[in-house]
Design a protein around this nucleic acid. Sequence first.
DNA 1: GAAAATATAAACAGCTTACTCACATTTAAC
DNA 2: GTTAAATGTGAGTAAGCTGTTTATATTTTC
Lengths: 208, 208
Amino acid sequence: MSTRIAKPAPRMRKEPRQARSVATVEAIIEAGARVLSETGWAGFSTNKVAEAAGVSIGSLYQYFPDKLALVDAIRRRHFDRVLSVIREAAAEEKPLRHFARELVRGMIAAHSIHPTLHQVLLDEAPGDRGSRAAHASFQARYLEHYTAAVAQYRRHRKDTETMARVLSSAIEGVIHNAARRNMLDAPELQKQLGELICAYLTGQGARV
Amino acid sequence: MSTRIAKPAPRMRKEPRQARSVATVEAIIEAGARVLSETGWAGFSTNKVAEAAGVSIGSLYQYFPDKLALVDAIRRRHFDRVLSVIREAAAEEKPLRHFARELVRGMIAAHSIHPTLHQVLLDEAPGDRGSRAAHASFQARYLEHYTAAVAQYRRHRKDTETMARVLSSAIEGVIHNAARRNMLDAPELQKQLGELICAYLTGQGARV
DNA sequence: GAAAATATAAACAGCTTACTCACATTTAAC
DNA sequence: GTTAAATGTGAGTAAGCTGTTTATATTTTC
């Protein structure tokens, strides 16, 4: 088997110049995120997205060369948002409790619009050429911020990266589960998630 | 819209009587789990399953009335296994540390064969008639065990159920993430997951 | 050796899908 | 006001895939 050769994979077929075309593209991406979140990758069709966006299918293909380019755009937009949440939460030095609270609040906010988009993007949507790179780079920077946070609030220097991964995936798991049950804004959940973070980072229950 | 009327939905079209038909059915379910785990619901087709099982498509339809009945069988088998893991871990009273270690070990083992099956079953696979019930009942019993464990190791009686949900979804998140990265058997991950559980249940980092 | 159980795979009808194209409308430039 | 570029439309298409049936072949049981 020869090494997989990357397709040309243009990101956009045409750059929107006027205001209305910018709005069209935005509407398509937004509707795409909605469809992807609500019906999963299996139900994600270009026709459905166009209809949900209140736009003809032709308009969609005027800007996006194919289906994958569209998913890519959706992915990029979502990941950027999530990343900025973590970046902000871990920006200045602050007590652990504040960090946890802000992180929880931000993550929940980021997932409130399209509750299951994140997981669908991570698990179901294919990462064919072009997105795998963005995907990996996102994951790397994502983990980077978590690692920094762990290093900041944790004594030992051991297993820092593993801890960051455990922490981030635990948070994602809780949020994903809550999203599925429409419980994202339950205050006791937010509190408990915050305490999970604090407890793990304080780590008094764990004599190494 | 009228209330959804349940289809007849027979569980099996014919009960296997001879040894080889039992083996056939088993092979189909096993292959189905593999296909579902590896390609997701979108790639889950009866023909593909039959081929993966080394069995003709006709044989599949001799026992399973339709696609959904097959998913149901897969779901039932997997959920039973996971449930028995938790049941065993929380069986007798034992120190928190032991409980955590055994739970982690069991969950990892249960997910090692088909790493992402659990999530696919929970998120992607449809729960049409017949399975929603099984699904809900599984979730209930699942949570029940976690709740019992939380109550056992935690002082306060407040928020016990929420804690159970947070704990279970956090664990699932970590395991799911590790599975995706083929890191399920990394020992430092197991250790850290154990410590997450202990820290949360000990809960010293969290002054309520 | 007959009847019941089990296995086979070609065939099909229907549906969905991603995507194109010829044309209509709107905006901007002069 | 005219023109050319930008943008929008949606019926149409061709291909692929799906779940399922059926008529036939093989194996087991008694």
